[in-house]
Amino acid sequence: MNQIINMVIRMVTRRLINMGINKGIDVAAKRGQGGKDLTPEQRQAAGKTSKRAKQAVRMSRRIGRF
């Protein structure tokens, strides 16, 4: 029973951490403006920046497994 509880807690924690990291990347890419006062070009650049950062996080996780 203890193993099942630990497994569920690890799954929830992992999911929350990933959501937090993604949200932080999005905020940083938009320079903390929350999407306000951004031109369409800036919005597009922020989207590309956040996509690249998320890819880098995924790659670092894969490398860290070895």
Rank of each mutant, 00 (worst) to 15 (best):
M1W: 04
M1A: 11
N2I: 03
Q3N: 12
Q3M: 06
Q3T: 02
I4D: 08
I5N: 03
N6Q: 14
M7W: 05
M7Q: 14
M7P: 00
R10P: 01
V12G: 01
R15L: 13
I17W: 02
I17C: 03
I17V: 15
N18F: 06
G20C: 08
I21L: 14
I21V: 15
N22W: 05
N22D: 14
N22F: 09
N22L: 05
K23L: 14
K23R: 15
G24E: 07
I25N: 08
I25A: 09
A28H: 07
K30G: 04
K30R: 15
R31V: 01
R31L: 04
R31Y: 04
G34E: 10
G34Y: 08
G35H: 10
K36P: 00
K36S: 12
D37K: 13
L38Q: 15
P40Q: 06
E41K: 10
E41R: 08
Q44F: 13
A46V: 02
A46Q: 10
A46R: 07
G47Q: 12
K48G: 08
T49C: 06
T49K: 14
T49R: 14
S50N: 07
S50V: 05
R52S: 12
A53I: 05
A53P: 01
A53V: 06
A53Y: 05
V57S: 03
S60Y: 04
S60G: 01
R61K: 15
R61A: 09
I63Y: 04
I63P: 00
G64L: 03
R65N: 04
